[in-house]
């Protein structure tokens, strides 16, 4: 009798479900509380019942009361969320933070490499992260999280466990800009390095070869190519700033744009080719302003303006 009573209590939710009422089974309820499997709990959007979708309607098998007797369901079962952070405001963030913390506890003692040698990774920004998990994460908290990420990333790559790698993957940006490395400029069998530079509407290709400081631009000498001394200086600026003017010969082709643009396109082209010969010059060239491409172009004209910014003259009437 007692067992029967127990059984009836245990069966209550099941029976209620069989009676076709609204209450769902317990595991279903639990499933709904799970954080990490949103796909399973996704509801069908179809208006047709699932059973009809599957095909023929079949009657439920006969209830085997014996087997049910073995079920040890707690009386007054209460669904408990899988994640302890379920009732917090940012369960997913908290979960990942806790994961990182536990990983740190487990693997924090592994040897690390200096931060300068660590592979550069573009981590998600706060905005990105908020969008991915759909929670309003606080900036200060995210900073702490990213600090952990960076510390874990510093673990020696050969010793880094897969768990850590997977955990960190969630924080990587979709597009890794640091993996977009330009191809190194080769030096061909004649000892030439080809650098390409652009400025305004001009494009320059410069072949730089070890030599004595001779320059030819579009088949002309530097003086013929550029009438202004300033332009000549800016064309040769990469070599001049590094004191290499008499160490290399330059043969260049420039097209498009005006004289200033051509001269400054040449600066960039020669600097790139020079870096192929001597990569150690990069900091010096950067200080000389020869490494970065100047992205400025002609500003577009606006309606109501005479030029890009100029306004028509004020008239009384």
């Amino acid at each position: 009798m007692a067992s029967m009573k127990q059984g009836s209590i245990a069966l209550r939710p099941l029976c209620q479900g069989l009676r076709g009422q609204q209450r769902q089974p317990v595991d279903r309820l639990f499933q709904a509380l799970r954080l990490d499997a949103p796909a399973e709990s996704r509801r069908s959007l179809s208006t047709v019942p699932e059973s009809t979708q599957l095909g023929a309607i079949r009657a439920a098998p006969e209830i085997d009361l014996k087997s049910l007797a073995d079920l040890r369901l707690v009386p007054h079962a209460r669904p408990v969320p899988v994640s302890p952070s379920y009732f917090s405001r940012q369960p997913r963030f908290n979960d990942s933070y806790l994961t990182l913390q536990s990983l740190m506890r487990d693997y924090g003692n592994l040897p690390t490499i200096p931060s300068s040698q660590v592979e550069r990774i573009a981590w998600k920004t706060l905005v990105d992260f908020r969008q991915t998990i759909g929670e309003q994460v606080k900036a200060s908290e995210y900073v702490k999280c990213i600090e952990l990420v960076k510390r874990l990333h510093q673990i020696h790559p050969e010793l880094k466990p897969d768990v850590v790698k997977q955990a960190l993957d969630a924080f990587k940006r979709e597009v890794q800009s640091f993996s977009n490395v330009p191809n190194p400029i080769p030096i061909d069998r004649f000892g030439r390095a080809l650098g390409v530079g652009r400025r305004k509407a001009s494009t320059a290709r410069a072949w730089v070869v070890e030599g004595t400081g001779e320059v030819q631009i579009n088949g002309k000498s530097l003086a013929d190519a550029f009438g202004r001394v300033h332009d000549r200086e800016s064309a040769m600026w990469a070599l001049r700033a590094t004191g290499r003017i008499d160490k290399y010969n330059v043969w260049a082709l420039v097209e498009g744009g005006g004289t200033t643009g051509q001269a400054e396109a040449l600066t960039l082209a020669i600097a790139k080719a020079l870096m192929a010969h001597e990569p150690a010059l990069k900091p010096a060239l950067r200080r000389a302003g020869c490494v970065t491409r100047d992205p400025r172009r002609v500003e577009r004209k606006k309606h109501g303006h005479v030029k890009a910014r100029k306004m028509p003259a004020w008239v009384k009437r």
Binding site: T212, G213, E214, V215, S221, L222, A223, D224, V229, H230, R232, E233, M236, R240, G243, I245, D246
Partner: peptide, 25 residues
């Protein structure tokens, strides 16, 4: 270094251009 710089800036040793690059600017 100075000589070869002006020599290059003067269009590989065009004397008048060297003068312009070195004296007249």
């Amino acid at each position: 270094a100075t000589v070869s710089e002006k020599w290059t800036l003067g269009g590989n040793g065009v004397l008048g251009e060297m003068e312009r690059a070195a004296l007249l600017t």
